[in-house]
Computed example of a mutant assay.
Amino acid sequence: MEIPGEVLAAVGEDAVWSNEHEGLSGDVWRAGSSYVKRAGVDERDRLRWLGEHFEVPEIKAFANDWLVLADVGAPSLAAADPVLAGTVMGTVLRSLHALPVASCPFDARIPVVLDKARRNVEAGLVDPEDFDDDNRGVTPAELLERLIATAPEDEDLVVAHGDFCPPNVLLRPDGSTVLIDVSRLGVSDRHRDIALVHRELGEEAVDAFTRAYGLNPRPEMLSWYRLLDEFF
């Protein structure tokens, strides 16, 4: 791979590169005191916007879809006590969803995400081997038909993270949090985030999340947004 000079300068010429690190894989590397991602402008622009409201990693460099982020120096909630993880995620998500929808320039409403899901299927980017157990044996095209046919008619719009799961919430010892992996952030139904929380956390942690978030979700919306996530 040809790595842009701006990226190499930001991480340091002597930095050791590795893709073996907590919760990350694929086109994400640890390089010295930085993380390097093949992320594109979607994540760069969303980090800049969200950084006005929440703590996010500092952007050290961006060139040719290579994004260099400073190491925050905090662990994610992936290995935290389940009740603590649920409580923190509920508190953070309640604050995120309280941001004014009109202030967010990124659109992730149903027509937009359905179009992205279709394009991902057409481009061969949806792997049926990664489907949840209840969707195994179905082709991406067949699952897309189901997704479109069962799309909700209304949306309870908020500023949604889009990939809200324990590895994407970092927790400092002082209790402050940092949000990462925000390339899907945008105006969407609140259940897009809540569905992933329910999928990722056990029952006890989900109960803690619900108490902190303050809303009992609609089961049919959780099911649809879990189905949507199969395409991303």
Rank of each mutant, 00 (worst) to 15 (best):
L67Y: 02
N135V: 00
G124A: 06
R38V: 12
T87S: 15
G86S: 07
D115E: 15
A108N: 04
V101T: 13
A31Y: 08
I59M: 12
P57F: 04
I59F: 06
T87V: 02
S34K: 11
N120T: 01
L93R: 00
A102S: 13
V36D: 08
R38I: 10
G51D: 11
R109C: 03
L24F: 11
D42F: 13
A74L: 02
L50G: 06
N135I: 00
A79E: 15
L93M: 14
D71A: 13
E52Y: 00
A102W: 07
L114C: 05
S103C: 03
G40C: 09
N120Q: 08
R94W: 01
P105C: 08
A85T: 02
G90Q: 09
A63T: 07
L24K: 08
N64H: 11
G26A: 12
H53P: 06
N120A: 15
G26D: 11
L24S: 15
R30A: 14
E22R: 12
R30F: 04
M89W: 02
V36E: 09
E52H: 13
A117V: 08
L67T: 09
V88S: 06
E22S: 13
G73N: 11
A70Q: 14
F106N: 01
V101H: 04
T91L: 03
S33L: 10
L125D: 07
D134W: 14
G124P: 04
R118K: 14
D132C: 00
V101D: 02
R94Y: 00
V121H: 03
V83S: 05
W29G: 04
V126I: 12
D65I: 02
V126N: 13
A70E: 12
V121S: 05
K37T: 05
R94P: 00
N64D: 15
R46L: 08
I110W: 02
F62Q: 04
P75Q: 08
P57Y: 08
A108D: 01
S25N: 10
Y35W: 09
R46N: 08
L96K: 01
L24A: 15
H97N: 04
V101A: 03
A80V: 01
V41P: 05
P100A: 05
H97T: 05
K37N: 08
L67F: 02
K37I: 03
P82S: 12
A117C: 13
G26I: 11
N120I: 00
Y35Q: 06
E58F: 01
S76E: 01
D134Q: 14
G90V: 04
G86D: 05
S103H: 10
S34L: 10
G73M: 09
A79S: 14
E55R: 15
R46G: 09
P128L: 00
